[in-house]
Nucleic acid binder design. Structure first.
Lengths: 214, 214
DNA sequence: ATGTTTCTCCAACTTAAGGTGGAGAAGACA
DNA sequence: TGTCTTCTCCACCTTAAGTTGGAGAAACAT
């Protein structure tokens, strides 16, 4: 280590995945103000993020969950199939607890909200690069709350999506090729699992908790 | 004007208002890469934005609409009370047409989505600084579509908010100190104004169009 | 093999929600 | 003054939604 102060140790190579151009370019500008951080790739969509990872194998991937052409969760899964050791930090706005769970399940090493300061972001990148898993208390709390929450089944989730679309029971029955009785059955089950008393509340909590997106 | 090339004409003085720290700091970093752009103030909330404007009188105010402690629309209104000539550019994610309308109504000179590139942002700042009103076609379309859409009355809007909260007609009646019949009346009116057929659809379109938030 | 979960469906019931038509009072505006 | 809108309320009716208590079949795990 006989280096003068202008020679850098070996820069941390970073990929930034974020679908809002101005925000992504801002993040890149921000990161590159930091010495020995280098942005080696960036992308605004799911597929390109995967191919860019394949090509550059960055040390750290900074990823938003809302992307063009698929969820960031998909991108995380695919990237980990390429390299199980890949270090991914999710940096997103709060879109409900469901996404936190899914992203960490998929193998993200950290989950930051865009409300964090640049200092926190920088130190998290360093920590994750050093091999740590950096989970803020906010996220840990949400994660803990999710324990004990009953899971919706596949069909219940489908019905819930239709409810969010504003469909009636009859319409849902037709689209799912089942009887209206079955739809009612699914609705009764999902209402109690979500701990709400009608479809409007179900739709709103589905949005708030990020179980379905807009 | 006998100056060498390092001396700049007179920089455009900019204020950045955005509640996500990392995004705001990214924007600042991005803007300051541009020569003769200078960020003279920044804020993450409504009240501070107003006092910062009062103090610095920036040439351009770059403003997100989602802020801590009040909508950006409020901030725009207050700032224009201070200086009717103030040049405000809204830079936000798409939260429904209602916000576009309100922001321009309040006196914003441009309305950009965060999907724009840094080049577009820079050129818009220059255009607005030169006195132009720069409205992207996307925004113009949305604005045109709004013409002809019936306005909700104050009470109808109140009822709609309760619906979004998941309240029943009876609960709404109690909270608004009116009879359930009146609630039904308001609902019937707002359903036809929103061109939907039930409360769940009303709640969803209210969210999508940005008539009420989350 | 047996239990569990999920998905399917039914009947019958209660209640909430939505539709129709009308009407009186208050305020805004021309 | 008269008109318009908004807010308020009523009665009556229809239908959609939610509740209860089942039950059979398939898939899966122990």
């Amino acid at each position: 280590m006989t280096l003068d102060k202008t020679t850098l140790p070996t820069p941390i190579r970073i990929m930034v995945v974020e679908d809002h151009n101005v925000v992504r370019q801002g993040l890149v500008a921000l990161i590159e103000t930091e010495s020995n951080f280098e942005v080696v790739a960036q992308s605004d969509n799911c597929d390109e993020a995967i191919s860019q990872f394949q090509k550059h194998h960055p040390d750290i991937t900074l990823m938003d969950l809302r992307l063009k052409g698929g969820s960031g969760v998909t991108a995380i899964q695919r990237i980990r199939e390429i390299d199980i050791e890949s270090k991914i930090i999710v940096l997103t706005t709060y879109d409900g607890d469901e996404d936190i769970y899914k992203a960490l399940q998929a193998g993200a090493r950290s989950y930051l909200l865009k409300g964090v300061s640049s200092e926190e972001l920088i130190s998290t990148i360093r920590a994750v690069h050093a091999g740590k898993s950096c989970i803020p208390t906010f996220v840990a709390q949400r994660l803990a709350e999710r324990i004990g929450t009953e899971q919706l089944t596949g069909r219940e989730l489908e019905v819930l999506r239709h409810i969010v679309q504003g469909r009636s029971n009859k319409e849902i029955a037709v689209e799912m090729h089942i009887s209206e009785a079955t739809v009612k059955s699914h609705i009764n089950n999902l209402l109690s699992k979500l701990m709400v008393s009608d479809r409007t509340q179900a739709a709103m909590t589905a949005i708030q908790r990020g179980i379905v997106h807009l």
